[in-house]
Write a protein that binds this DNA or RNA. Structure first.
Lengths: 246, 246
DNA sequence: AAGTGGTCTAGACCACAAC
DNA sequence: TTGTGGTCTAGACCACTTA
């Protein structure tokens, strides 16, 4: 058997299309040849063509619109949405996000009491299972074109002896002013990771095929670096760039 | 026709496995039933089973090992690698990365001269096409278990009238000391995005199926916030968490 | 040798979008 | 009505891993 093994046919097809997309033969937004066409061109059956296309979808190079065709997604240009990360304190004492976006909670925002799972307890430096006030909202901005999932967690232990023992504190960013009123000096650290969304996340955030999810965990700390609260942001990784000063 | 359309069979299979993975029926690291088994259990053909499995692979929930079987990838635990982002200046004037990792360039590291493409020119605030010194290296750390692609770009225009007009400056982080010697006070900003890797990137960085790529662009600025240099980091998004102080 | 996943065929029928 | 992609079958043969 020859040491040089031929590439699989579906890979050749994927490679052909990928090349065409990256070198401009198939310009962004334009339709690609139909599956039937490709099957004829390459002399293979349609399932084989579809297997090649599945690769391109998984890598986010291509968008398929049912009944219409397959289209090139805009390639490696810079993302169009830049979101500087940070919290600014206004002269009037309010805290605002550095990206200046105005987010609106969807109708199904909730306030609940939950017990800290391991991953959150770790970041908050509390024992796993400790109760926390929890805000949960799907937020939109820019007339619904931008979406993010936002959760705020505040451990009960942080609120002992305050007016928030019975009533839930506000969600971030209003939470910051409330914590400052309680006498805390606030610092923030963000933890960032990325992964592919689960189907329900993809649906809620309208994440297309082949686009990763960006997850940001923001920990609010006091002057002694003791964690006071935690926020979780989940954002579509598509067409998004975030920035940090060092 | 009933308005309630049944889910596609391959989706039911994917959903069954996904549930089992998330609720612990199929523990991490354990093999899942073989394709043949699943085909019999669900009364479908093997290609249908494979279509369902393809979904799980694309979302990174499952790892398939040729000839051995399909295994559950450790699910939504916290990533095990934490890399704080930042640059520290040592008392002796050296600059070091805040994550404290020791990276080794692979054998194929190169120094070239390239012309700035639009995306880089934008970040460096130079005209597109302006020449730059370019370092390019695939780096490894922790005995090869960690990998990243690292590129350093320095526009010629920054080096006019310095000893680096003829000879390329060192790559970052040594570059920082060199720029400091030239009298610059250094500041840094990082820009972050995520996307699925292309096949060559996935191979070079050993990124498994369904794992996104994290791209970090670090701009080095002088006291007037004029960009002096640019670094590009490409990291496997798998099992990785990075952190920033705000 | 047995069991696993990888590739591929040659069709079929359906759902959706555009004309 | 036509063309597109979405789903599915019932096999076949191959490559790889483990025993």
């Amino acid at each position: 058997m020859p040491p040089e093994k031929a590439q699989a046919k579906y890979r050749q097809i994927a490679e052909h299309l990928r090349q065409g997309i990256l070198d401009g033969t198939y310009p962004a937004g334009q339709p690609l040849p139909s599956e039937e066409m490709l099957a004829q061109q390459f002399g293979v059956s349609r399932p084989t063509v579809r297997q090649g296309i599945a690769e391109l979808r998984a890598s986010g190079l291509v968008e398929v619109m049912m009944g219409r065709g397959m289209f090139v997604r805009s390639p490696q240009t810079r993302p169009s949405i830049l979101r500087p990360r940070g919290v600014r304190r206004e002269p009037d004492g309010r805290y605002v996000e550095a990206d200046g976006l105005l987010w609106t909670d969807s109708e199904d925002a909730t306030v609940t009491r939950t017990d800290a799972p391991l991953a959150l307890a770790d970041l908050l430096r509390i024992p796993p299972g400790e109760p926390m006030f929890t805000h949960d909202a799907l937020q939109t901005a820019d007339r619904g074109r931008l979406r993010q999932l936002h959760r705020t967690y505040v451990p009960f232990s942080v609120l002992i002896g305050t007016k928030y023992e019975e009533e839930a504190p506000p969600s971030a960013p209003h939470l910051y002013a409330a914590l400052a009123e309680l006498g805390h000096e606030l610092h923030f650290t963000e933890y960032l990771s990325t992964r592919m969304p689960l189907p329900d996340q993809a649906q809620a955030l309208r994440i297309p095929d082949g686009v990763p999810l960006l997850q940001i965990m923001r920990v609010t700390l006091n002057a002694d670096r003791k964690p006071l609260a935690l926020e979780e942001f989940q954002l579509p990784g598509d067409d998004l760039e975030i920035s940090y000063p060092l």
